[in-house]
Amino acid sequence: MSTKPFLNIDHVDKIFPLGKGKEYVALRDVKLEIRENEIVSIIGHSGCGKSTILNLIAGLDTITKGVILLEDREINAPGPERAVVFQNHSLLPWLSVYQNIEMAVKKVRSDLNPKEVRDHVIRYIDLVNLDHAKDKYPAEISGGMKQRVGIARALSIEPKVLLMDEPFGALDSLTRANLQDHLMRIQMQTGNTVIIITHDVDEAVLLSDRVIMMTNGPEATIGEILEVNLPHPRERLTLQHNEEYLQCRGAIVEFLYSKFAKHDE
């Protein structure tokens, strides 16, 4: 078995030009190796460039220096092998739940015949338990359901990596917990490699195999990496008194509010 990393972020800098010769160094020397089937969270204060890292992996933004390799192939444009779940779901409001997923499947899986497309779409709608809402339009369903459709759409194109940009940030805490459980169950079933951007300490510990903690910008980089040695499937109820869980949680809180506290907001 190869020891090469699945996804390799190799000494990456991201610099945004500000005009008039000025520039903003968002990321400096970010180095991270992610294994296949791993769930990784990237956590940090706002402005730490965590969404920038995600955009670079997604190919929605260009790398200034360094390289990102997915299975040894350089990333320099967006592609369906790296599906993105956006914070605000980004469903197309003129298409039904079914049609939103179908559109992605039709584009990426041009090898499927119409019946296979249908079965494929239905399979992913079932995966997020939305069979009853498949003919509804995005405006007719709740925020949590929309985000589940977003996840189903992303997974339906069978990506190698699932990128999630604060996927549950806009939801209330009960809905968020529900969706976190959905996500854990789905990942157990599909074995996807998942990268989640979050600013929620509990979410990071609950979901991840490793938590990547970012220093504050400008020139943000990876401060610490925390291994969460808890077996899957995880139960949020039993975890709240678990020693390992509490230690991980404490380490992140320590990092965010002591070592790299942010006072200006």
Binding site: V84, L92, M103, V108
Partner: peptide, 24 residues
Amino acid sequence: EDYLNVAKVLQLTPFEKVFQIILP
């Protein structure tokens, strides 16, 4: 921008982008 990002991730051709994202 979100809809255009969807188009980018799915690698829609310019023609598909006009008819599936922009025109609606």
